[in-house]
Simulated assay, not measured.
Amino acid sequence: MARVVRRTPGSPLLLAGLLAAAGLAHFAVPRPFDAIVPRALPGSPRVWTRASGVVELTLAAGLAVPRTRKLSARATALFFVGVFPANVQMAYDWRDRPAPARGLALGRLPLQVPLYLWARAADRSASAK
Rank of each mutant, 00 (worst) to 15 (best):
L19A: 04
P98N: 10
M90H: 06
S44T: 15
R74M: 10
F33S: 03
A75I: 05
A60E: 02
A75V: 04
P42F: 05
A119W: 00
V81Q: 12
F84P: 00
L41Q: 05
A16E: 01
L57H: 07
V65H: 08
Q112W: 12
S72N: 08
A119G: 04
P30R: 07
A61D: 06
P38Q: 04
I36D: 01
A40N: 05
R102M: 13
A101Q: 13
P98C: 07
P45E: 07
P85S: 08
S72E: 13
G107L: 12
A64L: 02
W48C: 01
R31Q: 11
S44D: 15
L13C: 11
A25M: 08
T68G: 00
P85A: 07
V37P: 00
A119P: 01
A91E: 10
L117E: 15
F79Q: 02
Q112S: 13
A119Y: 04
A91G: 13
L117M: 14
R108W: 06
G53L: 00
L78F: 15
F33K: 01
R74A: 10
L104M: 15
A75N: 09
A75F: 13
L59D: 00
P66Q: 06
F27V: 14
L71Y: 06
A51C: 11
R120V: 14
I36Y: 02
R74W: 10
R67L: 06
A73S: 12
A40C: 09
L14G: 06
S44E: 15
Y116V: 07
S11I: 05
L104P: 03
A77P: 11
V47I: 14
F33Y: 09
V55N: 06
P100G: 10
H26I: 06
A99E: 15
G17L: 13
R108M: 12
L109S: 08
P100Q: 09
T49E: 03
T49V: 00
G107H: 11
W118D: 02
L19G: 01
L109R: 05
G43I: 04
H26R: 14
L14Y: 09
L15K: 01
A105T: 01
L18F: 08
D93W: 03
R31L: 05
P110M: 05
L115I: 09
T58R: 01
L14T: 02
V113S: 08
G62W: 00
A86N: 08
A28G: 04
G103D: 09
P66V: 13
R108Q: 12
A28I: 15
R39K: 14
W94M: 15
Y116T: 08
F84C: 07
T58N: 03
L41E: 08
L106F: 04
A22G: 14
L15Y: 05
A35P: 01
S52A: 12
Y92M: 10
V47E: 07
A73L: 04
